[in-house]
């Protein structure tokens, strides 16, 4: 009874997100899976106090990065941190068109649809998004998630003890031209390149399917 009541309170866009992931028929065939590579720029690294400034994302389907299927949104924030402006270059009153956090989340979830999320250090981006969802009294995000860091660790030779690789390091290893570091969309595109190269390498010794890819995650599995 209580559950039913709670469910009713969900805003339509959130219910839509839940259904999209739950009812998707696309996950079984690798070619039909839509992946969304995303990156966020934030005011800082504190999950409680910092906020998302920008979400950038681009989709991959059947080994192709689809520029036509990309997403970029800037969020108006009260929280501000002078230190991180140096990194992401988004000023409080910059020229980008900015929307409210809720509007951004609505548009993002709509864009996301049933896609599988790919990010580098996915945990950080997803936690920031989940914190935003929490403020809207919804969440956490339902989408399946992958992390380029862990896919790399699965197929890389050698340094098993190194826990984390930065995006810079992966670009170096996989010989990807770096540009636009530290813009959300730029990093999302780099992540997409890394992912394409990783899956090609991965395919050589493994069958490429979603379940196995997800199994490369240590903490995101549910």
């Amino acid at each position: 009874m209580f559950n039913f009541f709670k469910k009713k309170k969900y805003p339509e866009y959130w219910q839509k997100h839940i259904n999209a992931v739950k009812n998707s028929r696309n996950y079984s065939n690798y070619e039909s899976i839509r992946f969304v590579c995303l990156d966020t720029e934030t005011t800082g690294f504190d999950y409680d106090n910092d906020r998302i400034l920008c979400i950038g994302a681009v989709a991959i389907k059947n080994n192709k990065i689809l520029v036509s299927d990309s997403f970029e949104i800037y969020i108006q924030q009260e929280v501000f941190n002078k230190e991180t402006i140096k990194i992401h270059g988004i000023r409080r009153n910059g020229t980008e068109k900015k929307v409210s956090e809720e509007e951004a989340i609505i548009q993002f979830l709509e864009y996301l649809d049933d896609a599988v999320i790919i990010a580098h250090h996915t945990k950080f981006d997803i936690t920031m998004i989940n914190e935003a969802l929490k403020r809207l009294k919804i969440g956490p995000i339902k989408s399946k998630q992958l992390d380029t860091n862990f896919i790399h660790k699965k197929i890389a030779q050698g340094n098993w003890f190194k826990k984390l690789f930065s995006l810079d390091e992966l670009c170096e290893i996989y010989n990807i031209k770096m540009h636009d570091r530290h813009t959300a969309s730029g990093d999302a595109l780099l992540t997409a390149y890394v992912f394409l190269k990783l899956t090609f390498k991965y395919k050589k010794n493994n069958v490429l399917n979603l379940t196995d890819l997800i199994n490369t995650n240590y903490y995101l599995n549910k």
Partner: peptide, 10 residues
């Protein structure tokens, strides 16, 4: 909408 990726391709 700003589209940084398309701008890079451009």
């Amino acid at each position: 909408m700003k589209n940084t990726i398309a701008e890079r391709i451009f």
